[in-house]
Design a protein around this nucleic acid. Structure first.
Lengths: 254, 254
DNA sequence: ACCTGAACACCGTTCAAGT
DNA sequence: ACCTGAACACCGTTCAAGT
């Protein structure tokens, strides 16, 4: 049904496609059936062209998928992160939430982002925006950069695990996905996994927005927690790499 | 060469395979060529059997891949996390580092873990071990569970992004991978991405062990940072989900 | 430069059949 | 229960050819 892409600029029969048109077709397939639905032949069929025509625009399928990943990142809304009125934590949350929402809306997309280097212009733009917010938060540039990666990893990783549980087809509402997890977790044998079984309700909520927000909050706490200054004063190499030394906070409440 | 799996129990011609043998063959393919090298036909060929024989043991390829993911998790070393002498932070670091190392040794594996529900026994065991450590650290059970997911997401996510940059074939040493990133980052246009360009060296080190350890440390800081107690005293639903409220720490050093 | 038909070496999966 | 041959509807990619 209406596979032919009713773009207004179509002139005669088939002429002068461009990269964007090919990526559009790929995106349509991605939205319908996830990453594995994106095939060179499918894309070609989607724009009414022979399979090998795709190779006029991309050297191989991997290049097409990278372009598709970039295309998805292009839609992320940087505005919320940029609005200077908000506290910086809210701006990080806004950016993280927007990225998550976009990726949940296209269940195949996160796998794409995690399986190719994030080095395209829109990936860079995302990092740049986040760097700006973290810089305004008072983090030193080096810390801000590391924090940037930490946050991106957290967002992409959690969406990936969320999406991994989805069946084909439309994405159920969050509360139903949580309910399904809760049900499945009833099968966990308490004699082998006592803590997991005891906390099944919380484990069921791993994929929830609340857990997502909580995680980001803990990360932000960690980024701003007071900790002993690195050995020297020079910003060159600092010795924070050694694990376990320096335990600034301590567990509280029982 | 020597594709035939020289298990000692082979009796006559071909008889009584079992699931494990099939997964073994899949693991061999995974190690040689990543996830995309794991094909039903390849696995069958690896054990000298017709392609459709695989369907005697697994209903479809997805089930085989899930079993393969479990198999990879089975090798994670829980001992370091369990040794009661160490401070709890060190134990978390040990577990995280071991998981990362295993996954870097099998570049295809992390994609496997991130594309199927982590609900097998070894996945549960990993969570249980981490829950125990976090419990001993003084986190309340509910916090410990959430923290557990936060940490797993961080480890899997960062390894996935690391691995995404790898070419086919043997994994170069970390310092070479960082150097390659540094070189590639010289192409980032400073007029569009000034902060990224300025911090290129740190960005190049995103995939380093040092960044990995730093990230885990910041997460652990966040988990133990003193923060305002949730609204009530009841451990039921707490209101921590609201973003932006509560800014326990503040950026320091300029 | 852009597009094609035809072919290559692959896939996952099913089915009816054999032991 | 376990394994097979043969077939189905697919893949990504290459090549020589056409405009």
């Amino acid at each position: 049904m209406a596979e032919r892409a009713a773009g207004p600029g179509r002139v005669g029969r088939r002429r002068a496609l461009d990269e964007a048109e090919v990526v559009d077709a790929a995106l349509r397939l991605l939205d319908r059936g996830g990453v594995e639905a994106v095939s060179v032949r499918g894309v070609a069929a989607g724009i009414g062209v022979a399979p090998n025509t795709v190779y006029t625009y991309f050297p191989d399928k991997a290049a097409l998928l990278r372009a598709l990943a970039e295309r998805v990142l292009a839609e992320v809304d940087h505005a919320a992160a940029g609005s200077a009125g908000l506290p910086w934590r809210d701006r990080v949350h806004a950016l993280a939430a927007d990225l998550r929402a976009r990726l949940l809306a296209r269940p195949g997309a996160v796998g794409l982002l995690l399986s190719a280097p994030m080095d395209g212009p829109h990936a860079l733009a995302l990092g740049e925006t986040l760097l700006a917010v973290l810089g305004e938060a008072g983090l030193a540039p080096r810390e801000a950069a590391r924090a940037c990666y930490l946050l991106i990893v957290q967002v992409l990783g959690s969406v990936a695990l969320e999406v991994a549980e989805l069946e084909e087809g439309p994405v159920p509402a969050e509360r139903e996905r949580v309910a399904a997890r809760r049900e499945a977790l009833r099968a966990v044998p308490a004699e082998h996994f006592p803590r997991t079984a005891a906390m099944a309700d919380t484990v069921a909520e791993y994929i929830s927005t609340e857990q997502f927000t909580w995680s980001i909050d803990r990360v932000l706490d960690g980024l701003t927690a007071v900790r002993p200054a690195p050995t020297g004063d020079a910003p060159g190499t600092d010795g924070t790499g050694a694990p376990g030394t320096g335990t600034p906070g301590r567990g509280r409440r029982s």
